[in-house]
Computed example of a mutant assay.
Amino acid sequence: MPAPERVPSRSLTDTEPATVLTVLAEGRLTVRGQVRGASNAVLYCTVAHEGEEVTCVYKPVAGEQPLWDFPDGTLAQREMAAYEISEATGWGLIPPTVLRDGPYGQGMCQLWIEAAPRDDGPDEAGEPPLLALVEDEEPGEGWKAVALAETGEGRTALLVHADDPRLRRLAVLDAVINNGDRKGGHLLPGPGGRLYGIDHGVTFNTEDKLRTLLWGWAGEPLTAEAVAVVERLGAELEPGTSLVTRLGELITAVEIEALRERVEGLRVSGRHPEPSGAWPSIPWPPV
């Protein structure tokens, strides 16, 4: 299948989330190409409905590679569950996502986010970098240290990420959903200063599998905003709520209980989690 060519489509704004979801769920899905380099099938598509057309990513279940440590459900279902939690936070950190049938069967269908340009120099206008390697032993102002990284020939550099409130929200979301794969390439700056996270298939495991490049706040107190979100999530995850009913169609009851425990743990500690040491804390490759 050819690599995808960008297909022009009308951009639906953030003020039209219901319209976006309707188009994604009910529209005619047309495969335009394949996103190369992914371990599972990732198809670039257009979806059209009642005069609206958007571009999207379609990940059919039939194209998933089985994972021994995620034996239940599908990656597509976990992506959908992650979207449900993102929406419950009120932060809107994951692009609009639905589960639907498509040309290759049921799969996850997610609005395509065209990443904003990066600012790679003093004369370039665009989104400032979110990750960097620096030769200093300590991060500079506006940066948080992650880990030392090998750069070849016995040299090391400090991996840092921006001290950015958008990234900090994602760090909280990842802790809640137990994201096992928060890579740099999964961070998409969008229009209007928005920041989205994508690729949430390895989430909601009952064991601690948090692997992320966003460890810069590890052990630090949660922001007041995050504390309020965690408390609200705890209430919305009580048995019998509409959120739990939707999650029950996507992940197992044991995974939902583990989700409750993680949220309660964040509420009680009031702090960002730290690496447990029982699992590699940084994904590979990191980008």
Rank of each mutant, 00 (worst) to 15 (best):
E5C: 05
T13K: 13
P17E: 11
V23M: 06
L24H: 02
A25V: 01
V31Q: 04
A41E: 13
E50D: 15
E53V: 08
K59Y: 12
G63S: 07
M80W: 10
A82M: 06
L93Y: 05
P96Q: 09
G105C: 08
M108R: 04
Q110H: 07
L111Q: 14
W112N: 12
E114A: 12
D119H: 12
G121A: 11
A125M: 12
V134H: 07
E138S: 14
E138K: 14
K144C: 05
G152S: 11
G154A: 13
V160C: 11
V160E: 02
V160Y: 01
L173V: 06
A175C: 04
A175G: 01
V176R: 02
V176S: 01
N179W: 01
H186K: 11
L187F: 14
P191N: 12
G193M: 08
G193A: 08
V202P: 03
F204S: 03
R211I: 05
T212K: 00
T212D: 00
L213G: 03
W217Y: 01
G219M: 07
E220K: 00
V227E: 14
R232A: 15
L233K: 02
G234M: 06
P239G: 11
S242E: 15
L243D: 10
T245P: 01
T245D: 13
I251H: 01
I251W: 00
R260G: 05
E261L: 09
R262L: 06
E264C: 05
G265Y: 11
H272Q: 01
W279D: 09
W279I: 06
I282S: 01
P286M: 14
V287R: 14
